[in-house]
């Protein structure tokens, strides 16, 4: 079994030595100490482990390290640029779109990926994109509101 020797995570090349069959989720959490990405189910049903692989939201529990050895990976820790929060992170704070917040990393990563793809998503498009992310505290309506707010603020910045 081959080992992966480096990973591109959050804009940095990280030297590692990880069994290629290891799920990306565990590599991030255990080898790279990026614990913002969460375990929730291990079967791609809850979205807590969502990261961006080459800019697209993926479930890191279902991807092996070998599959992303040549990809750019972004985790919740790498979403803010310098000290500047991503508009969706700011929107989550502004509308308090969290309670226990364990699902928050995954929600933000899924939502940020949606906004990249569809800068002005409809309610139906938001629901469709977020359907795979579970929140047990019941902050769904606030998360919808945060995505809409971020879409607006991103539009203003772009103008």
């Amino acid at each position: 079994m081959a080992n992966v020797k480096q990973l591109r995570v959050n804009g940095q090349v990280r030297t590692v030595d990880i069994d290629e069959s290891k799920p990306l989720l565990e590599a991030l959490r255990e080898n790279l100490d990026l614990t913002g990405t969460k375990y929730g189910c291990g079967e791609g049903q809850c979205g807590a482990c969502t990261v961006h692989v080459d800019g697209v939201a993926k479930r890191s529990c279902l991807i092996t390290v070998g599959e992303v050895a040549d990809s750019a990976i972004t985790t919740i820790e790498g979403l803010a640029t310098h000290d500047h929060l991503h508009p969706l992170q700011q929107a989550f704070l502004d509308v308090e779109a969290m309670q226990c917040a364990y699902c928050t990393s995954g929600m933000i990563m899924s939502g940020a990926s949606l906004l990249k793809r569809l800068p002005n998503p409809s309610d139906a498009e938001i629901d469709k994109a977020m359907e795979g992310n579970i929140c047990r505290c019941g902050t769904h309506n606030r998360i919808r509101a945060a995505i809409r707010l971020a879409a607006t603020s991103m539009k203003e910045v772009a103008r």
Binding site: I76, E77, L79, Q90, F92, E96, M98, T104
Partner: peptide, 8 residues
């Protein structure tokens, strides 16, 4: 709140 939205 900020610690939660940044994964910290």
């Amino acid at each position: 709140g900020r610690a939660y939205v940044t994964g910290g």
